[in-house]
Design a protein around this nucleic acid. Structure first.
Lengths: 201, 201
DNA sequence: TCACGATCATGACATCTGTCATGGCCAGGT
DNA sequence: ACCTGGCCATGACAGATGTCATGATCGTGA
């Protein structure tokens, strides 16, 4: 019997996943949480074999939750599951010690298969995404460039960004300029889009 | 026996929903599609009582699919289901003849409850979202302003927008200016964000 | 019929943005 | 000790952006 922990902020999909996995005779859902910072506590209580973590979650995202979980409960293997097949996510998930990476476009069979394979000690990765990840490579952005782009996401002016980051406007413009150059974009908004789609934010 | 049609582009959640609904003794999933333009054909084939449509889908979004479905198969009631609880979506869903509106944050019980209520001829709407929808009101944007903002989403320059819409740059700037004013934003990017979050795009 | 509002366009203007040159500070590696 | 590279800052400049005034066309409804 494979004990599974589910973490997803959307109650409906969480419940649906539980129902689907519960249909398998060798799988049992032992815990469900809706936030990243509840993962470790629930895992300590229920000692699952496999944890299925969504990337987008309130409190703490699935990637850093995976890191914490690997340290707190090493016996529990992690599958990261996300709506968006962004190359950067895969890289970060693997760096965080995840054993599997599944996109929500996958078929139900692929998910239960992933659970079984990961439980057996194998690694499971979408080959298409893996190739894309290798092609995209590591984020070219420095930490500050990433920060500036992240704040620039909600469309403020340079003055707003400077205030939010406690920097001078000139510095913000420099970081933006660098980020725009590195992403191959022509506008700040385009740079945000590229970085977001690549999973660099 | 309530016959249900599922439409969602993510195979995993679609399968999970099917498993969950399948557990109910009085519900049967008779069709599953992954794109908006497959809905009507599948409904004609299987004559479902209730159709559960996601808003985000390739081909044709859930809202216009709902409209088509109401005309093609009037006996089939529609529940629109979405990740994002944007006020504008609710308004458009209702205008398209939907009988129910469910956010993916809802509990599994609420969904099956919604299916049963809608099948019984009732309307099902998240009260919180309904209030927000009424507060936000109808989109203040004209069609062209909406178009311009929609194209501006991926961060091109004014020249790019003008080319894409076959307009002069001055006109594009005017529409943008109007949209920025109406949304209470200070930048084009902010305006895009506001309009997007309100479901006006 | 006439007023109104949406659409499209032009031109002018102040401001904002993106780029570049330059320089100082600091940590890590040779 | 020295070089490299990230970080912060300033100042200057061309080009893009947002605003405004003005005017023309067109369809709708009073």
């Amino acid at each position: 019997m494979i004990k599974v922990l589910l973490a997803d902020d959307q109650a409906l999909v969480r419940g649906a996943f539980a129902a689907m996995l519960g249909l398998e005779p060798d799988i049992e859902v032992v815990a469900q949480v809706s936030a990243g910072d509840e993962v470790v506590a629930a895992a300590r209580r229920t000692t699952p074999d496999v944890a299925l973590l969504d990337v987008q979650m309130p409190g703490k995202d699935g990637l850093s939750a995976a890191l914490d979980l690997r340290q707190a409960v090493p016996s529990c293997r992690v599958i990261v599951c996300t709506t968006f097949g962004r190359p950067g996510y895969l890289a970060r998930a693997m760096a965080a010690g995840a054993a599997g990476f599944v996109v929500k476009d996958a078929s139900p069979e692929q998910l239960v298969d992933a659970v079984r394979r990961v439980h057996a000690g194998l690694r499971v990765v979408d080959p298409v995404l893996a190739a894309e990840s290798l092609a995209t490579g590591h984020s070219p952005l420095t930490d500050r460039e990433r920060d500036v782009l992240a704040v620039a996401r909600d469309g403020g002016t340079v003055a707003d960004l400077a205030k939010a980051l406690h920097l001078s406007e000139g510095t913000v413009r420099n970081h933006l300029s660098a980020a725009i150059g590195k992403t191959g974009a022509r506008t700040r908004a385009e740079a945000v889009k590229v970085a977001e789609d690549s999973g660099w934010l």
